[in-house]
């Protein structure tokens, strides 16, 4: 009975760790997963395997994943121009704004990846995985970023000092109803 309950929770946890949006959350789910799986090894009568799983799964992989999260370098920028919007401003590849943004990100040891998209902004915000979504009209520039993005403060400072003429509004965007501090 106990074994069955724990086996079912293992399957649920594995599926949730795969489907989650934020990588930080997946690290916590994997920690719970390896805890329960190593207790199951004990129930099946393999204490040495359980000790190995506890050492490797709970400690070493957690530290490794956190280090990997810190070094995660690809910074995805969505540039959206909706073809139905009459106010839109077309952006070519050589716009100085984009070039400055790229050089700033490279200085911060990130690797910028810029995607030009014609989808409306709402679908991008709800469906795609991005670090920055930029939407530019004649009057102002709207930049959407996630609330718990650690790079965003430095980026805001840089943009406000160097591109004050573009009337930049930085909007901190929360995914769904999940507002993490």
């Amino acid at each position: 009975m106990t074994t069955n309950i724990l086996l079912i929770t293992l399957v649920v946890l594995a599926i949730i760790a795969l489907n989650t949006q934020k990588l930080r959350r997946a690290v916590v789910y994997l920690g719970v997963f390896s805890l329960i799986s190593s207790f199951l090894y004990l129930l099946y009568g393999a204490p040495d395997v359980a000790i190995a799983e506890a050492v490797i799964g709970t400690t070493i992989t957690t530290v490794l994943y956190l280090v990997a999260l810190k070094k995660y370098q690809v910074f995805t920028i969505y540039f959206c121009s909706d073809p139905n919007d009459p106010n839109r401003r077309n952006l070519t590849n050589n716009s100085p704004f984009i070039n400055n943004l790229e050089s700033f990100l490279i200085k911060q040891e990130m690797e910028p990846q810029i995607i030009y998209s014609e989808k409306p902004l709402k679908t991008i915000l709800t469906q795609d995985k991005f670090d920055l979504a930029i939407c530019q009209t004649n009057q102002k520039t709207l930049i959407y970023g996630s609330v718990d993005d650690y790079q965003l403060d430095a980026l805001e400072d840089y943009l406000l000092t160097n591109h004050g003429d573009l009337n930049i509004h930085l909007i901190r965007y929360t995914e769904g109803d999940d507002n993490e501090a």
């Binding site: 009975m1 309950i5 724990l6 929770t9 946890l13 789910y29 109803d177 507002n179 993490e180 501090a181």
Partner: peptide
């Protein structure tokens, strides 16, 4: 084991990372 399942619901739903 039942307690673990109950706490797991909080882990999955939990609004904040804490």
């Amino acid at each position: 084991a039942i307690y673990i399942v109950l706490v797991l619901i909080r882990v999955i739903l939990g609004p904040t990372i804490w």
